[in-house]
């Protein structure tokens, strides 16, 4: 037993935590752990989506008015940007499995830039809402006739897109950390779980936007 133990340490693979038997078991545990977190995130965002659904069924006119105030071109552009960033993220994971450091770096940088583009467009959109007086509590003076519940729509708009943007900002921070670690050569074809796990988070953020875009920008348009 003692000899086994020493032997085990001599061949300890890079990146394997001591509580796991091998890399495959570690990977399985890490992915399951990340999914547990993402499920709590799904239920967290569900609170927002459910609130939206309840109020939209009660005040459909106000919510249609709200949708018309949003810029559909910017919303659609950001949808394309975010889905493209999911593709580059999936490619980064793919390259890390191949053990290609430069490929991984390139796709992670592309993901970071696309995330930045998304946040810049969001900033432009938020600025316009402040100019038009469509920010409940901070700059609320909508022009012309409007439903009294319009403020409810915009409270949900800022709550939901703001929480989504916060997730993007946290994701961008984590991406910088991954970029530094990748550049240092920490990840190999065998040990790349942090990149894969971050990819799951990034795709989750993409999925939230896939629902936010039609709900906030599109419904009640025609």
């Amino acid at each position: 037993m003692a000899a086994d133990h020493v032997d085990h340490h001599e061949h300890h693979p890079h990146g394997l935590a001591h509580q796991f038997e091998d890399m495959a078991q570690q990977k399985e545990s890490v992915l399951l752990g990340m999914w547990s977190f993402l499920i709590t995130e799904v239920l967290f965002f569900s609170g927002y989506f459910l609130t939206y659904l309840v109020y939209r069924t009660q005040y459909p006119v106000a919510f249609a008015e709200g949708s018309h105030e949003l810029d559909i071109t910017m919303g659609a552009f950001n949808t394309v940007v975010l889905i493209l960033s999911s593709l580059t993220m999936a490619m980064a994971v793919h390259k890390s499995h191949e053990g290609s450091k430069n490929g991984t770096l390139g796709y992670l940088i592309a993901t970071f830039i696309l995330g930045g583009v998304f946040l810049c467009v969001k900033y432009v959109e938020y600025s316009a809402k402040f100019e038009h007086g469509l920010v409940p509590g901070l700059a609320w003076h909508p022009h012309g006739e409007h439903s009294p519940q319009l403020a409810l729509f915009f409270s949900l708009y800022f709550g939901m897109t703001g929480m989504h943007a916060l997730h993007m900002i946290i994701g961008a921070g984590l991406l910088i950390w991954l970029l530094v670690k990748t550049a240092k050569g920490t990840y190999t074809a065998e040990y790349n779980a942090p990149i894969e796990v971050f990819g799951l988070y990034w795709h989750f953020v993409d999925i939230v936007w896939i629902f936010l875009f039609p709900l906030l920008y599109l419904l009640g348009r025609h």
């Binding site: 593709l87 990819g199 419904l219």
Partner: peptide
């Protein structure tokens, strides 16, 4: 979104969104 689908507009938008989410979960994730 710009077609007059009557009461089915919301349903169509949500079916498309769910399809997109499923594709992301199954393949990208």
């Amino acid at each position: 979104a710009f077609q007059d689908l009557g009461p089915y507009g919301d349903l169509v938008a949500m079916v498309i969104a769910c399809t997109k989410a499923t594709v992301v979960i199954v393949f990208f994730m």
